[in-house]
């Protein structure tokens, strides 16, 4: 089953360009769910509506993940704006995530 969650959002106040992200998860495995929850908190707090997020289930689309250079899940890829970045793990280190995404708290 394809699990694609795309949130088209308008521009927020703190970023001039929308943050585009893709989160790779393993279905509803514990760290994957934790990663989704942690990312949601950050988005709600700092990005408001100014982001786009796609969630890819690697159990369903493993080849796509491999094509994107993903080796483990959960992994979060920042696709835009540049520079692109990749964060591995359940995103529990909030400051590291924000730094990688270019968000200033």
């Amino acid at each position: 089953m394809r699990r694609k969650k795309t949130l088209a959002k308008s521009l927020g106040s703190r970023l001039t360009a929308a943050l585009v992200m893709r989160l790779y998860v393993a279905n509803s495995a514990p760290n994957s769910l934790l990663a989704i929850a942690n990312l949601q908190i950050i988005c709600d707090e700092f990005l408001q509506d100014n982001f786009k997020l796609e969630i890819v289930d690697v159990l369903e689309e493993p080849l796509r993940a491999l094509a994107d250079g993903i080796l483990v899940t959960p992994s979060l890829a920042k696709l835009a704006p540049s520079p692109i970045a990749k964060i591995v793990g359940n995103l529990s280190d909030k400051s590291s995530v924000m730094r990688a995404l270019g968000i200033r708290g």
Partner: peptide, 20 residues
Amino acid sequence: GQVDAILDPVSGRAILLPDA
């Protein structure tokens, strides 16, 4: 312990870790 699965480039499959 923050990873649920790894992707095997050889087989093209996702491998779940035991806890996950």
